[in-house]
Design a protein around this nucleic acid. Structure first.
Lengths: 107, 107
DNA sequence: ATTATGTGTCGTATGTTTGCGACATTAGTC
DNA sequence: GACTAATGTCGCAAACATACGACACATAAT
């Protein structure tokens, strides 16, 4: 039950980040931001078939995971990809999976 | 609510696979199988601080996601990495993230 | 100062995941 | 056949995630 103790930190962080991208809405948001590099704000909820409230929550999770950034710009908020955070995630992902790929499979 | 309709198939599948690796226990199992290429069976539950039942459930999820294979070998079951499934996952992951990395960030 | 607009946060309902003990199953051993 | 060992499956409880309407908050326009 003592989650903090049971598993290796790096496994826990990779798990945490994977969870963030484990929802189609969040992937769709990232995809949308990649396409419209103009970092448009929450009219993302027109593009995605979910209520504005729900989209806002997904945006928060993405922001907390440092996969996107949000900048206040007058009335609107401009969201965009956080390439630093994305690269960090990529690095963790790669190092885990290259370990798996190096392993010999013997069955 | 009609999950099947809302999002693109490829997003949904990437989300589904990401969810599988979004738990430290499942990552720990994969790591263990990579280290001990001898594909040892469910004494994984000695290595991981969870009950045998719980480990067995995680193994099932990994198997259903085609990230591992299990072969009956007399009384024991030999689990090992499913490199084909892992590669497939890697491909999906890469194609999504290379799209993100190509995007210009404008804020 | 009132109103309209773009947002975020709270509370709540409903669904999903996690973890586990108790039971079932199957393969070898005596 | 009865016994043990290695597993898997069922059913429950507790924790967590998802979705949303109602409300609160700011900024800008009138």
């Amino acid at each position: 039950m003592n989650k903090g103790e049971k598993f290796d930190d790096s496994l826990q962080e990779l798990a945490r980040l994977s969870k963030v991208i484990s929802h189609p809405a969040r992937l769709a948001i990232l995809e949308y931001l990649a396409k419209t590099r103009t970092c448009i704000s929450g009219d993302i909820s027109d593009y995605i078939p979910l209520s504005r409230t729900t989209v806002s929550q997904h945006l928060r999770e993405l922001r907390e995971a440092k996969l996107i950034k949000g900048e206040i710009d007058g009335l609107k908020i401009s969201y965009c990809l956080n390439s630093k955070g994305i690269k960090r995630f990529n690095k963790m992902y790669k190092s885990f999976f290259s370990m798996l790929n190096k392993a010999e499979v013997s069955c």
